[in-house]
Design a protein around this nucleic acid. Structure first.
Lengths: 210, 210
DNA sequence: GTCTATAAGGTGATAGAC
DNA sequence: GTCTATCACCTTATAGAC
């Protein structure tokens, strides 16, 4: 699994259930957001990025709201495709790989801005139920992955018999907290500290030592 | 310590370094944000809430940006005053009290909306360095409190000899992750799960059992 | 300190031609 | 599908009277 928002919306990771026009618009939307932030997003800027006019955007989407929900659907899809990778390993390495990718030591600028954009969108939860549903799905997916890894480890005897659902919530909450801290503060040492402490927690609480 | 945004900006917890006019404006700003969200905040709405006109607001603040930074200064101040409470207890109870208040089981509506507003503002980190500084300060403060409790516990022998700075970052990241999950998703069981797992982590990793 | 009035510009969205 | 033109509205911010 890659960093949360890296290479987001790459064509090859997006399913075929959208038309070319919609796909182009959503990708342009993402580029505008990475450059200007969600709060400065406008249909005009999207149209400029596309090299077309506002009316052309409104041919594909009836409203800005609908476009944003569509954008979130792309994010969810990307997330599903991206997260499915490399969990065929042993539970121990799968979990530590996941932690490492959830809390990377460094972020390139585009990924960084992509994370901020997703946080901006996440904070718009009052906008509609549709928004809320998408972020609920993303968190459910991530927690589900972690829980499955832990349960698999418990079955194979690699992990102690912990309560997988709770521990999974704990790990995901920690990773998300670290990620948000990184992109909203100047505390450069924090992410690495969290990662070390979380890894040591996993090692001593979950791992079955012989 | 109370919930992050409960009773925020109560008059008695705010210092005297602002004029009455500014204080009134900032408190009106908060009320507008709780009702309409940060992204729908406007000078007009603040003026309406105050029962005055836009020009009156601009007499006190040269720009919306300046007003928002001033608002964040109030938040930081509130945070300082609020967080200083009840840490005179034993390290064990101080830490578990803190975790309980950082991850409350229930949130009333106003506190809930207040948390969303703070998340919206936090996501506006690209707006200016001033924004970023305030949230850096808030996180530093919180991590500092936790670290001090842990260090005190290590000194008194209540806790094992853990690396206080790292564990503090871990605990705060987890609490923040749980808080953001709560206000941006429909996953009602998640906060309690995180809280249980975090408490059990603290109990088994930190506590010196005899 | 607060008011009225206004400027200058961006926004989401639509009508109708091609 | 894309265009031009336009609408109604809201925004931040200022000038000047009281």
């Amino acid at each position: 699994m890659n960093d949360h928002a890296s290479h987001i919306l790459n064509t090859d990771s997006i399913e075929q259930k959208w038309s070319d026009g919609e796909r182009e618009i959503v990708r342009a939307t993402y580029r505008v957001m990475v450059e200007h932030g969600y709060s400065n997003l406008s249909i005009s800027k999207i149209a400029d990025e596309l090299g077309k006019t506002k009316a052309s955007v409104y041919y594909h989407y009836d409203s800005k709201e609908e476009l944003l929900v569509s954008f979130l659907d792309f994010v969810v899809d990307w997330f599903k495709n991206d997260i499915a990778e490399e969990i065929s390993e042993s539970p121990e390495t799968a979990l530590s790989n996941l932690v490492e990718s959830l809390i990377p030591l460094e972020l390139d600028d585009e990924t960084f801005h992509g994370q901020v954009v997703l946080l901006e969108l996440r904070s718009q939860t009052r906008r509609s139920e549709e928004f809320r549903e998408r972020f609920t799905e993303i968190n459910d997916l991530l927690v589900g992955i972690v829980r499955d890894i832990i349960e698999r480890g418990v079955e194979t005897g690699a992990f102690r018999d912990v309560e997988a659902p709770r521990v999974a919530e704990h790990i995901v909450a920690t990773a998300n907290g670290a990620r948000i801290d990184r992109v909203t503060t100047d505390r450069p040492a924090a992410p690495a500290a969290v990662r070390v402490s979380l890894s040591s927690y996993i090692d001593s609480e979950l791992r079955q030592h012989d």
